[in-house]
Amino acid sequence: MPGTQQRFSLIGEKSLVDLRKLIGVPIEDSLEPWCYEASRDNVRHWAHGIGDDNPLWSDPQYAADTSYGRILAPPSFIFALNRSFSGYVGGMAGVHAMFAGIDVTWHQPMMLGDQFTTKVWLKDLVEHQTRFAGRSIQQIYRCEFYNQKSELVAAGDSWCFRTERDTARERGTKYEEVKKKAPVRYEREDLAKIFSYYESEEIRGSIPRFIEDVKVGDKLQTIVKGPMTVTGFIAFAQGWGGLYIRANKLAWKQLKKHPGLGIPNKFGIPDVPERVHWEDDLATLVGTPAAYDYGPERCSWMSHHLTNWMGDSGFLRHLEVKIRRHNPVGDTLYISGEVVRTFDDGGEHYAEISQKAINQDGELSVLANGIVKLPSRG
């Protein structure tokens, strides 16, 4: 790049060719997942990491009185079960990866004590031109999740965009206006407004939401996530298990095995690229305004919105999420939804919900579409 110092790797044609050869090939040596089973602790840590206090996920006494008779894991718990699906993509060493969306169908609930295996493979590579970094590669993975009975629990796609860090920083136009703004500052009345959403957040719980009571145009209660803090991002990582978050000897072993992983910090210490989620220094080097949230975290917030609405007797059947921008530290998200269709299929009853999330400045952060199975009075 004329006039700029190249600090990071570029998208190379050879690496793309080599990666394309792996399309459709099962990933047999997949990275160890954070969770193999839906234990009481694993499920609670996951739910608390996304800020979801639904007692169905964490209160054994409450769950015992439901039709399930025991704790369930939130649908988004699948992110803790497979690293590739969660955005730890292979190939193109040194090229930044940004998690950007999912398209998933659930077939079975995930219940306390269930144990899981997965099958995952690279599904496709798609080239795009973006405002964030010019040329980028959408890297799509397909994953299937099975329980200990070999039943298919869920299956779907997730994708990351691979971008050149230097290009995003020097030539990207997506965040030009954001970078010119003064840092967000919350006054007491601003925080009071946000906290009022938390105070009034409704969990449908044990009260069934029958399909007969749902109409096209019905609005879901808006929920809030934020204001974003590094503390919140770390809380998510505790439940999700960031692959690169390792200490001392284990961190050294990881960097020894993958020398290109380490990016020197301001002290000259090689550290992992995942620190874009808690260090502004590296986040700005890759072209974003500041440290920002995790993509799987944001997808999980969209499913949280739906499970609040559907209640214990509902089942999240399908969710598609498209992430449109980063949420840097200081942002607050407002998640809203509207019923756009009700329909029957195979004797089951469904509501389709269109969702979106905007930040405190009205900027679009997420678009999503969910399909929820609901009971009928009949």
Rank of each mutant, 00 (worst) to 15 (best):
V276H: 02
H277L: 07
H277M: 06
W278Y: 14
E279V: 04
E279C: 11
D280L: 01
D280V: 00
D280T: 02
D280W: 03
D280P: 04
D281E: 15
D281W: 15
D281I: 07
L282Y: 05
L282S: 01
L285Y: 09
L285V: 06
V286Y: 04
V286P: 02
V286L: 04
V286I: 15
P289M: 00
P289F: 04
P289Y: 00
P289L: 02
A290P: 06
A290D: 11
A291M: 12
A291S: 13
A291I: 10
Y292L: 04
Y292E: 03
D293G: 14
Y294R: 01
Y294C: 04
Y294F: 13
Y294T: 02
G295V: 15
G295A: 08
E297L: 07
E297W: 15
E297K: 14
R298C: 10
C299W: 08
C299E: 05
S300P: 12
S300G: 14
S300R: 14
W301D: 11
W301I: 02
W301P: 05
W301G: 05
W301K: 07
M302T: 04
M302Q: 05
M302W: 01
M302C: 07
M302V: 15
M302D: 01
S303D: 03
S303V: 09
S303P: 00
S303Y: 08
S303W: 09
S303T: 15
H304D: 03
H304S: 06
H304L: 07
H304T: 07
H304C: 05
H304P: 00
H305W: 02
L306Y: 10
L306P: 03
L306G: 04
T307V: 15
T307E: 11
T307W: 03
T307D: 05
T307M: 07
N308K: 15
N308Q: 14
N308E: 11
N308V: 11
W309I: 00
W309Q: 01
W309M: 01
M310S: 09
G311Y: 04
D312Q: 03
D312W: 05
D312K: 08
S313R: 15
S313L: 13
S313K: 13
S313G: 08
G314P: 12
F315V: 07
F315R: 09
L316Y: 13
L316V: 07
L316C: 08
R317T: 09
R317W: 11
R317C: 10
R317V: 09
R317S: 13
H318E: 08
H318A: 13
L319A: 12
L319V: 15
E320W: 08
E320C: 08
E320I: 15
V321T: 15
K322V: 13
K322F: 09
I323W: 12
I323V: 14
R324V: 12
R324S: 00
R324F: 06
R325H: 00
R325P: 01
N327L: 14
N327A: 14
N327F: 04
P328M: 04
P328Y: 07
P328Q: 05
P328N: 11
V329C: 05
V329L: 05
V329Y: 06
V329F: 06
G330K: 03
G330V: 01
D331R: 03
D331Q: 03
T332V: 15
T332M: 10
L333H: 02
L333D: 06
L333M: 15
Y334R: 11
